[in-house]
Design a protein around this nucleic acid. Sequence first.
RNA 1: GCCCGGGUGGUGUAGUGGCCCAUCAUACGACCCUGUCACGGUCGUGACGCGGGUUCAAAUCCCGCCUCGGGCGCCA
Length: 434
Amino acid sequence: MRNRTYTADAEPGRTVTVAGWVHEIRDLGGIAFLILRDKTGRIQIKFEKDEMDDELVETGLGVHRESVVTVTGDVEEEPRAPTGVEIVPESIEVLAEAAPDLPLDPSGKVDAELSTRLDNRTLDLRKEEVKAIFEIRAEVLRAVREQFRSIGCTEINTPKIVATGTEGGTELFPITYFGREAFMNQSPQLFKQLMIGSGLERVFEIGPIFRAEEHNTPRHLNEATSIDFESAFIDQREAMDACESVVRAAYEAVADNCAEELETLGLADEFEVPEDDFPRISYEEAIERINATGELDEQLVWGDDLSTEAERALGDDVGGHYFITDWPSEIKPFYIKDHDADPQLSTGFDMMHPRMELVSGGQREHRYEKLVEGFEQQGLDPDSFEYYTKMFKYGMPPHAGWGLGGERLVMTMLDLPNIREAVLFPRDRQRLSP
RNA sequence: GCCCGGGUGGUGUAGUGGCCCAUCAUACGACCCUGUCACGGUCGUGACGCGGGUUCAAAUCCCGCCUCGGGCGCCA
């Protein structure tokens, strides 16, 4: 739209045309105010009924809330106006009238349940707090990309329609691909590893992953955004360094560039960029620390996976981001390399926020024979992964990498109660639309 | 997949067998009001998820279904 002025840029003394949504109309009798909202904020339009054209007043005050209008008029300085300026309208055009019964209240006077909000996400996103989450999410993704680039990664995109899953046939959404069985990919794991042996050496991908697990929790999605990293010629320790740098870059960018959004979310004072290095706690030490908290009814023993309760106990104990390293080989996937000195111990690591797991990674098994052995040990048929394994025969360097849950990063960063808050249109067990 | 708890006007809620042709707020409609900024005031409109059962009597108790949320497992 030509000549449109954002409400935030309306300077006193100018004649402007603003466009946006009718946030509210306050009719005091002889005088009335229409609050117009656009992506930059709000501005007040003043109607002094005795001094203005009846038709103009009729149009301006006759519209329902959330209708889309353009207003042309003079901007005047006015201390009594909410933003210090107001517009005296000369003309008003209603571009799209809104129905009177709104499915939720964008002005936020009345709360709506998450389910109602997601059913009407467009209206929900007219609320400042909700919009702020997605402005921050965009900033996080921008910063993460920039950080990857600065450590020499090439951005890649791998297929989401695949013939076999990363770790077998379970937990995958089956689809039909021209009459053949296919699946939605649950992870770019195998593809990004294939790029390690290519000329690219060091890659990252930000893209959707699909998991068909029928869980029902505030921290799981069936379609999520995975932030993946993989690099040749590094070990798991260097992968953790990269992980830490990417997460820190995201926090720093939000602190630097999203002050207004943090203010809107009420986080301006408490938002903190993680200062210290993330502690690297071995699995063995983690078990000991969890047992020492006394939070668990039953003591953990070596070989146990960490339950949600155990993760939480350790998170409270540590108090910030941290790594859990050197997991038992048995509870990590086949593509994770074991320690040479101790095959019971893997190079796998998780990066944790006190509330939940954010990252899973490790050094990869790059030796063809060992890799095929690993497939067999996990009960998988190496033949169906031949497209993957055969590239390990032609010069696959040692490498390491990780995957970070994008929504979990945003969720923990902003202390959101539900991961669905961090996705525009979440896919969960019961929700398939919008 | 197992377990638990919900579904009341457009939205959010109160209501544990009769006091309920259902509370309050907001929205919506009408009227009053010349500085609101959650404007205020008066009046009005509008709802018990669906089906069956128990009972003299059901929003309330029971059963089935649908639907939503949460816990666990598993994971990012």
